[in-house]
Design a protein around this nucleic acid. Sequence first.
DNA 1: AATCTATTGTTATTATTCTAACAATTTATA
DNA 2: TATAAATTGTTAGAATAATAACAATAGATT
Lengths: 218, 218
Amino acid sequence: MEEKEISKAVIKRLPRYYRYLGELMESGVERISSNELSSKMKVTASQIRQDLNNFGGFGQQGYGYNVKHLYTEIGKILGLDKNHNVIIVGAGNLGQAIANYGAFEKRGFIIKGIFDVNPRLQGVTVRGIEIRMIDELEQFIKDNNVQIAALTIPKTKAAEMAELLVKYGVKAIWNFAHTDLNLPDDILIENVHLSESLMRLSYNITRYEKERLNENDN
Amino acid sequence: MEEKEISKAVIKRLPRYYRYLGELMESGVERISSNELSSKMKVTASQIRQDLNNFGGFGQQGYGYNVKHLYTEIGKILGLDKNHNVIIVGAGNLGQAIANYGAFEKRGFIIKGIFDVNPRLQGVTVRGIEIRMIDELEQFIKDNNVQIAALTIPKTKAAEMAELLVKYGVKAIWNFAHTDLNLPDDILIENVHLSESLMRLSYNITRYEKERLNENDN
DNA sequence: AATCTATTGTTATTATTCTAACAATTTATA
DNA sequence: TATAAATTGTTAGAATAATAACAATAGATT
């Protein structure tokens, strides 16, 4: 029963495969070879084949991959065939942006509730979901079997809130606060650090400007 | 003048170093060793030293690193000491969330304008910046020397809008649309694919649940 | 039915990234 | 001032990841 550990690099690429396959499916493509997919996605065909083979043989020699089948299988690997109950903690623009993102529920993420500290938001609804106050949190998490919390509050409050959420039974946190959360090992954390993304862009712009300067010197 | 190429893996870590150093600075810490930083950040000290040495020797043997100095130097490497003019294209929740993120300007990103197609948003202001219509885009980009556009519109419109932006002179795109943009090589793209992040979380939850099941079997 | 072509699954090779080790050097201590 | 302790910068080695190569196999063609 020895399942070999799949590397993070592979996991990182799976959602992108899933996206491309979804698009192919929508445009009616039935089969695709690793080579065709390779040129669309700008990764090597070799990598595609090796990535997929971590999970078993989804293709057929001489034929390629059946788009629909592969899409479904990757979906299963990613756990998109199961439902997860989610709350959003922090009903600011970012929290509301997430709440309004429709494809969400399509992927099995059911938004059960939205929470905030600001009493002026009490009762306001976003996409049919009413914003609740933090004091309802504990009961709500238990009543609704909430497994995931999207954390969209300022970093100063994030650590404290994360601990509270875990105490109340949340098992995974999708963290948008600009800080790292230190939580028990059995709690899953997926960070979205927008500021870091922006800094990488800044680095690349700077490097690119420098390169152009050097080119002009030669 | 042979500057060795810095690997992407290193660049990815720089913003995180920057964040930790900033926090240390704020709490008044003056010096730090790679070992101390290592235990705070949960990376190896070896990696920290090697990463930093890609850019030159910022530390001193027997002493460690001066926090303020290192912070400043990494800031320079990331290009945070220069200003960049930004527009936000798409004034939905996500666009507004970005506009409202204060630390932004602190890092040298000056939000010059916000644009949308929805005429009902015309004239509405976000953080003192008035929302403009797309027909003003070309003139605005030229008048304000806009280099970066944050693209926060639905994926169906994203490719077309990106091409327009590039045509009008934008040099870099911070892409929040759930699609890959195909643009000329000299245009920089930094993708923030939230749906992929969510799928990774989903994968990890699924895998974790499976592991727990297996443990119970043994 | 036999042969050819396409294309996977898998193994081998190469490249990249990370970690460990240690000599060089600075600061602190006696 | 000499010695010990701390800690970097850098080189060497180990581990991981990516690419290339190719044998196996299915489908297409004659």
